[in-house]
Amino acid sequence: MAPLSAVLDLGQQASAPRVTVSVVSHGQRSLVASLLAQLADLHDSDIGRVVVVHNLPDDELPRPQHAEFELLQMHNEKPLGFSANHNRAFAHCATPWFAVLNPDIDFHFDNPFPVLFGAVAAEPRLGAVAPVLLQPGTLHAEPNRGVVTPLELIRRRLPGWRPPAEPSWLVGAFMMVRADVFASLDGFDERFRLYCEDIDLGLRVRDEGWGIQRVNGARVVHQTQRSSHRRFKYTLMHLISLLQLWFKLLRDCSCSPHF
């Protein structure tokens, strides 16, 4: 395994940063470079460190010159799944909060972090929060997600179906989790490789008595790729992950409240 590389030592800051950001690159240099530049443009002292995990062989990315955060880059010897990559990044989290971001997040609007921190200050029992994800082009908000069960999949296709008023879980494209809660849950379940990790984590956060919230005042654009809608390989992986999730819920509690 290649060693960690730190490209900046920030030294002492006026106030302690509150969030470590984790980003996984699958050879997506341009997307990740754009995301780093956008994070730097926020000039947000709450962002103490950004960890980029290179899941495929790649050269290190330059740190934006105006960045106020520390940049750490990790290189995998072999490709890992979503869960394992972000769990590796979390090992370098030294802040109270841990944020998971996709490379295809676009900060089209104002900085979402102050709004997210405002929400957790108002409700200390929140274990995870997320901004509203807007679809590119239309800027329509992606709907809240309920637990993806067989019954829920049927309900979605019935006339008059509406998404839940409150989400049962938060989308892994952008979520911010209390570091102590994430650690107590042993992070993402690495038995999931690409899909359902965020569903599983959200349900476990709630089962431990913590709340989750999609914060309507915080908005970002999610330039989603929807790979599972176009390629059979990803559709199959999605179905396998759903089966894993259902079997896990049934195994953990045969009368699971999530079904």
Results as ranks from 00 to 15, higher is better:
L39I: 08
V129G: 01
L42N: 11
A119T: 00
F109L: 15
G48F: 04
D44K: 03
S34P: 04
L72Y: 12
T138H: 07
A67T: 02
A40Q: 06
R88W: 13
G81E: 06
I47L: 11
T95W: 00
L72T: 05
R88M: 14
P57M: 04
P103M: 03
E77A: 14
V51K: 01
L126G: 02
V19H: 05
N111W: 03
E77F: 13
F69C: 12
A94M: 10
V23S: 06
L56C: 12
H54C: 05
P57F: 09
A141G: 01
D104E: 13
E142V: 07
G81F: 06
A33P: 09
H75K: 14
S34C: 12
E142M: 15
L116A: 01
G127A: 03
G48T: 01
L35I: 01
I105G: 08
P136H: 07
P114E: 07
V51W: 01
V148Q: 10
R29G: 04
L126M: 00
L61V: 00
V51Q: 07
L80E: 13
N102G: 09
G48K: 06
P96R: 05
P96H: 02
F113C: 03
N85R: 10
L39D: 01
V52G: 08
A67Y: 07
Q135W: 12
P62D: 13
A122F: 02
